[in-house]
Structure formats: structure tokens, C-alpha cells
Amino acid sequence: MAVEAAVAPLAPPRRFPTLRRLFRHRLFLIGLVLFGTMVVLALGAELIAPHAPARMQFRMRFRPPGEGFLLGTDNFGRDILSRLVFGARLSLGIGFAVVLVTGIAGTIIGLAAGYFRRVDEPLMRAMDALMAFPAVMLALAIAAALGPSAVNAVIALSVVYIPRTARIVRASVLVVREMEYVQAALAFGGRHLWILWRHVLPNSLAPLIVQLTFIFAYAVLAESILSFLGVGPPPPTPTWGNMIAEGKDYIREAWWIAMWPGLAICLTVLGLNLLGDGLRDVLDPRLKVQQG
């Protein structure tokens, strides 16, 4: 069959346009460097740490930052730099685990609630009930009830952040399910699971990714709060929250004990928030705050 020449040649495709735009976003790059540094510290803890994080040297207590101990030592004579990098591993690990659990559970709940309208009411009311509690109070209550450990901190923080994730996913699913390509997939015989997996999920992902970046930041912060209050991984495990908790009594004589982990938390959260802002600007530009 003869068909008239229908189509003008296309411009050559640009590869990875989203990545290009991300790497042109200055704040995103700063965030990437900050957070990337923390990840490198956490992953390379064994290589970076000059001492074993739990090794106590009583003659070396309260050494200020300087020779031998780059960031100083704490009240037990432990090397703060070593504790900081091993603490990064635990704090970031807990944050990542929370993001993973929250991302999966929140996505499933959000997809179900947004797509199958019959389960929307019960699911979202349950989420509302969880969201009615202040986040840290709820996490504290759950962690206290389960007992202090890293796994329990992950459980507690996931319970807190799943409702927020589910809401975000549900909101985008409600938009995507009305798209005509979803109707098309139904018309061409697609099952609901197929449509959810092939159409609804990929098109709802952008706000979720942005949100998960912020949840990572909240989780790092909340985990230090839990540790600080004594319901995180128990001492002498080095987490940033534990380190601050132990250092707070000596803050006037030895400011460095609490300050370094505090700075680490700050930079990590700042880095993640910058990453999230950059991702939001590029992936989900509708949410961008209008800048004068």
C-alpha cells in the first residue's frame, strides 16, 4: 500500500535530557557534593577511620581537635573522626532503609488508594489517623515500645513517613488514572495490574522521588533525635545522635564532642534538601515555587 511521505526527519535525539538539566542545576550539584561526601565517608569508614570507633584511651580524654586526633576525642578518649564515619554508616543506613521501606509501602498503598477507589476511604483514613500524631512523638512512642535498636528505629520512622508518601503517590495516581492513555490501555485489553505497573506507576514517580529525598533528610534528623533521647541504637554504638547525647554534658569544656556530629547532621540534611529541590525543579516543575 502506498502511503504518502508523512514525516519530516526528526532532530537527532538528545540523550538523557533529565540528567543534563540536573547537572546544570547549581544547588543540586552542591547538594550532590555534600551528600556524596557523607556517603563516601560512610562507605569507606574502615579506610578513613584512624582508630577503632569503640577504642577507649583514658589518658587521651577530651583532646581538642589537632594532631593525632583530627577532630579530637570524647569523654572516653575515643577518636571522634572514627566514630563520626562509622556513625555516618549507621545514620545514613537507617535513613536509606526508611526511604526504601517507606517508598515501597507508601507506593503500594498510594497506588491502591488512588486507582481502586473502593479502598481509598479506608486506606486514607488510616493514613490520616497516623498523620494526626506529631511525627517525632509517634516515632518516639513506637521506638520506645519496641525497644532501642537500629531495626526498631527503621520500623518506627517508616510508620511515621509511610502516610506522607502514600498521600503523595495517591495524589499523582488520581491525575494519571484519568489520562487518556490509561483509557487506551484498558480499551486494548490491559489488566489493572498491567496498567498500574506500565502506565500509572512510571507517570506518578516524579513527585515520589522528590518526596523520598526529603524523607531521607527527615529520617536522618529524626534518627538522631531518637538516639539523642535514648531510643535509637543503644550506646556505645556510634550514631550521630548518640554522639551528641554523650557530648552535651561537656559542651562548655569540650565543644567538639557534640559539634562535629551536629555539623554532620546539618550538612547531610542540607545536602539532601538541595538534592530534593533540584530534583523537584527538574522532574516536577509544576511544584516549583515562583521566584520573583
Binding site: Y181, Q183, A185, R191, R198
Partner: peptide, 23 residues
């Protein structure tokens, strides 16, 4: 009904909304 859909097809009005932008 789902199996019947192979005999029943559709072309939509909106050539923008009816194609999944991620595919």
C-alpha cells in the same frame, strides 16, 4: 470482555493525551 477487546479498537481524539509520554 478483556479477550473480546482484541476485536474492538479505538483511536482517540487527543493525540497528546492518548499516548503514554514515558513509552
Amino acid at each position: 470482555m478483556r479477550r473480546m477487546r482484541r476485536h474492538l479498537s479505538v483511536i482517540f481524539q487527543d493525540p497528546y493525551g492518548s499516548l503514554d509520554p514515558r513509552m
